[in-house]
Design a binder for these strands. Structure first.
Lengths: 150, 150
DNA sequence: AAAAAACCTTGAGGTTGTCAACTATCGATT
DNA sequence: AATCGATAGTTGACAACCTCAAGGTTTTTT
């Protein structure tokens, strides 16, 4: 049945199918970037999700990484051992520990981001008009994401 | 002003920046799908890259997965132990072993794909016109991918 | 106050990932 | 045809990842 409805799939699903290909390519680039910066994928992923000056609770990191809480303990352990992040107690809820990027962590995070910044070939070879079209549609897609969901 | 060069980045890069957000979300969905089907992420990834009726050399699997050859050995070991793939000698080059999906492997691969098939919220809530716009631009992006690059 | 839930950590056990070394095979050179 | 260098896959060692179950601390609910 998954296959029968291929012909009647929505344009959204058809767009998503193509996007999944770009995602796999993006994943490969991410692995290369992490490896070149001597980071394991999970560590690089954690860094990418941290904003300088925006402490994040451990369990929230677990959520965005899609893994167990106990997993984050080890990942943060190693990042902390390398001086890339620090754990900070959270006075308002003493069960919680916040993860904060250190200066070195910010710098390394930016380097990971830089590795990922260039758009892949497929997108770059689009006409300027198409690139703008794509960017604008994507902006509309993620536009309402901030407020409503929360 | 987070990035000085933000103002002069191309629309392609700006589109890609938004896409990276979808990449992280897609990754999470992939992890959930794999977990629900009792597959480890790497195993599910391998299945997704295999086409029924299209044998793939081990080293090619390593390339698309972005990992070492020696890594693929273990992943295929476990997939084979579960009867999802088989190793097949390749007469034309006897160093090579081909990985082939078994019927059970095809079925499980399709189930992973089904889990990933639905477009994420952000895309689905676009207007029908925008969905088509997005799909068509993406088609143009990946269009020339077959022949030129290789 | 007691019970239930949330947050983080620990430990066990299997999987992933990298590296270096090894065997077998292929391709090109001599 | 014999050899040298490169390629394909495997193995072993070792660190990291990941899930689960269990436990301690703190918060929230009853």
């Amino acid at each position: 049945m998954a296959l029968a409805r291929a012909t009647e799939s929505s344009p959204a699903d058809e767009a998503w199918e193509i996007l999944r290909g770009l995602l796999a390519a993006g994943r490969r680039r991410f692995l290369v970037a992490a490896s070149e910066l001597d980071l394991h994928p999970a560590q690089a992923g954690a860094l990418l999700h941290l904003e300088p000056a925006t402490p994040m609770p451990m369990h929230e990191l677990a959520t965005v990484l899609g893994c167990d809480n106990s997993n984050v303990t080890g990942i943060v352990d190693r990042l902390e051992a390398r001086g890339l992040v620090t754990r900070r107690p959270y006075a308002q809820d003493r069960r919680v520990k916040h993860v904060v990027l250190s200066p070195a962590g910010v710098e390394l995070r930016d380097r990971v981001r830089a590795h990922m910044a260039d758009a892949p070939e497929a997108i770059r070879r689009l006409s300027e008009a198409d690139q703008c079209l794509l960017r604008d549609v994507l902006r509309r897609a993620v536009e309402g994401d901030q407020a409503p969901a929360g």
